[in-house]
């Protein structure tokens, strides 16, 4: 259950990163949409979304769910995978 919630949070982050991936920090980006930075991403809130996603993908505990979220996001965009 917990990993399903996290998966959804990460897909949301991929969607938000589409709005702004480089210039705004996670903190500011989530605020723009009246959302809270998820607890799992708190440590990275001063980084822009693309960098934050790369760093959480590096974390062996989160790598699996990040890759699942990436796949789900690509499917949503109808990218052939």
């Amino acid at each position: 259950m917990r990993s399903e919630v996290l998966l959804e949070k990460l897909v949301t982050l991929f969607r938000l990163a589409e709005v702004e991936g480089e210039d705004l920090t996670l903190n500011k980006l989530y605020k723009l949409f009246n959302l809270q930075v998820p607890l799992e991403l708190k440590e990275l809130e001063d980084l822009p979304p693309r960098l934050a996603l790369t760093l959480i993908h590096e974390d062996p505990r989160l790598r699996g769910v990040v890759r699942k979220a990436a796949k789900a996001y690509l499917r949503e965009k109808k990218v052939k995978i």
Partner: peptide
């Protein structure tokens, strides 16, 4: 654009999903 994203997805799905446009 689609070709570019699919070419990246062939290399790695996470890299393609994390593409900054």
């Amino acid at each position: 654009r689609r070709k570019l994203i699919e070419k990246l997805a062939e290399i790695d799905e996470f890299v393609a999903a994390n593409l900054e446009e």
